[in-house]
Design a protein around this nucleic acid. Structure first.
Lengths: 215, 215
DNA sequence: CCGAAAACTGGACCGATGGTAGGGTTTTTA
DNA sequence: TAAAAACCCTACCATCGGTCCAGTTTTCGG
């Protein structure tokens, strides 16, 4: 039971790296089992077919992603009460997490699945959608708390602003990979942070006044 | 000569749709020739191997992309002299272009290639990088013209802000595809536009004054 | 309208791959 | 110590990328 778990995780590690480098369709089971040091039968003992591997891969990825976000924005909430400051701290911590990844971010499984939709069954597609919806809802709740205290100068749809984080991250990962520079992603997150800060900041002539109290 | 061009384009159309739906590795030559109504020999008459197909696909995509940007931001430059207003108009026009795509944006070849790097040879990878560099340089030049007239309140790296457009578009496409709603991409571009507008706008107490003259 | 180049067709073949099936063997754990 | 878990071995099949080569039709410039 314990041994099986370890092998399963090893398969997932190897498969994930390959999928993010070559795509799911081009990831062969043969190369996975060769790298994992098992036989084909061993592989099919853990996964009924390739689609079950895909589901397990994506599921593990989004679970880990949510865990990281919980941790980062949880710590940020501990550090300060003001929703805007807390969110800004969270974004900075998130940028640090990405900056500390050795070799940069390996790629987003959600994006990878999205660009190979027709390869997967409905369960995988649905899991992908659900994960994105959950992420958008999370950031939307943060922004709602901010907007309640700091009314933005120009009205901007909070849903769109919440989705923008995912877009920035996915786009930033692509930019980093294409340019061969992991720092591009970090800079994008910090730029988003700066723009959010500006958007919710009181106009300049009030800059010297103390911030409003949290509700 | 003309007939050959037409067939070649048809192959590229079919291949592009398949690549954006299933990935390059899972796109089989057999299905391409079946859909195109030609034989395998006919395919290899036009493309030496699959990698040459990949190069042609990507090359056609980035060329068309640049043409659209030239057109959109060229028209925007015609419509107004002020660099900020011109840029904002361009972004709105770009959003309209995406909104008018029937069935939404089919996907970005650059992102697709990025997520299947190991499948392609150096020429393809290099073309991908070059295209992104060119796009970043284009938007950076627009932003430079703006910053020269409207000094931003908080200093924000123009390169990062320029790259942000590509990130927003690539991320917006993914968001649109995953959510099954083409409008997500449009909203992201308009949100970027609003944030840029805010970033380069003079502080509120000067809002009623006329904008500065262009250099 | 003709001839040459362009644009294909047809078929045979190879090695590798994804995936299936089923019967064995070792390892772990309760 | 026995059963359940975690594998291994072998054989097999259809598909795919890719090659080769010999033919045939289509197109178009002169």
């Amino acid at each position: 039971m314990r041994k099986g778990e370890a092998t399963r995780e090893r398969i997932l590690d190897i498969a994930q790296a390959s999928v993010l480098e070559k795509g799911f369709g081009a990831t062969s089971i043969e190369e996975i089992i060769a790298a994992a040091g098992i036989t084909k039968s061993g592989f099919f003992y853990h996964f009924r077919d390739k689609n079950e591997l895909a589901y397990a891969l994506l599921n593990r990825y989004v679970t880990e992603d949510m865990r990281i976000l919980d941790e980062v924005f949880g710590r940020a909430a501990d550090l300060c009460d003001d929703p805007l400051q807390s969110f800004l701290v969270g974004l900075k911590l998130l940028a640090e997490v990405f900056a500390d990844l050795p070799g940069g971010h390996p790629g987003c499984m959600i994006a990878s699945v999205c660009y190979q939709e027709r390869l997967f069954d409905r369960r995988v597609i649905e899991l992908n959608r659900t994960a994105v919806v959950a992420m958008n809802a999370r950031f939307r709740s943060y922004l709602e708390a901010i907007a309640a205290v700091y009314p933005p100068r120009e009205p901007l749809d909070l849903d769109t602003l919440a989705e923008m984080i995912s877009c920035i991250i996915d786009g930033g990962i692509i930019m980093s990979k294409v340019m061969g520079d992991p720092n591009r992603l970090v800079r994008q997150i910090l730029a988003y942070r700066a723009l959010i800060k500006q958007h919710f900041s009181p106009p300049q002539e009030m800059a010297s006044r103390p911030p409003p109290l949290a509700a």
